[in-house]
Every structure is written in C-alpha cells, then in structure tokens.
Computed example of a mutant assay.
Amino acid sequence: MPFNHSIKLMITYTVPALETITMLLLILGKRFSGLVLSLLLLLSFTIYIILVLSHFFPKTPCSCGGLISTMSWKMHFWFNLMFIVINVYCLIYIQRKGGSQAQQR
C-alpha cells in the first residue's frame, strides 16, 4: 500500500480487529450492528479502490493479496459494490422487520 509507515501499522492492526468484531457481532445475534460495521468496512475499501482506479497514488498497488487475488481493481470495485447493495438491503430488511414486530405488540 502506498501509505506511510504509521498509517500502514494502524491499518495492519485495526482492519483485522474490526473484521473480527464484525464477525462476533453477527455470530452473537447483533445483526444490525454487525451489518453497519461491515458496511463501513466495505465502504472504506471501496473508497480505496476508487482512489486506486483514479490514479490518486503515484504507483498502482498490486491487487494480489487475499482469496480473490485474480481480480483486477475494476472487478474488486464491482464485487464490493454488489456486497454493499446486499448489506444495505439486509439493513433495510432488519429495520422493517423490527418495526413491524414492534407494531404487532
């Protein structure tokens, strides 16, 4: 990543910690909070992808890490966008379902 050392260090520890917290929230039944945190992570990475695609950084970083290493940056963008849409749909569904249950009581 084209970031200075202190930002790289912060990202190295913060992102996996937030991903773990997100997973725990979802597993422990705190779906809405987990989905909100998941959406924030997805949006953050999508903004990074947009910066890469717009040549904001002097050098384009490789997209070679992780399970989806064969994807180009454009494919990463569309992949993330798809999951952002799914995430937002789930958040709306949970809100509506929770609202309708409250009205039934």
Rank of each mutant, 00 (worst) to 15 (best):
M1K: 09
N4R: 07
I7M: 01
I7N: 00
I7T: 07
K8D: 05
L9V: 02
Y13V: 14
Y13A: 09
V15M: 10
A17F: 07
L18M: 14
T20H: 04
T20W: 05
I21S: 02
M23S: 08
L24T: 15
L25V: 03
L28T: 11
L28H: 08
G29Q: 13
F32K: 15
F32E: 10
S33Q: 09
V36T: 03
V36K: 02
V36W: 00
V36G: 00
S38V: 00
L39V: 00
L40Y: 05
L41P: 05
L42A: 02
L43I: 15
L43C: 15
F45I: 04
T46M: 04
T46R: 01
I47Q: 08
I47L: 13
I47V: 12
Y48F: 11
L51T: 02
L51D: 06
V52C: 03
L53S: 13
L53C: 12
S54E: 15
F57P: 03
P58A: 08
P58N: 10
K59Q: 07
G65E: 13
G66Q: 03
S69P: 04
S69F: 12
M75Q: 14
F77G: 01
F77V: 01
W78Q: 11
N80G: 11
L81Y: 04
M82L: 06
F83Q: 01
F83N: 01
N87W: 02
V88T: 15
Y89L: 10
Y89C: 11
Y93W: 08
Y93M: 06
Q95Y: 13
K97D: 10
S100E: 13
Q101E: 08
A102Q: 15
A102I: 13
Q104S: 10
R105E: 13
R105A: 12
R105G: 05
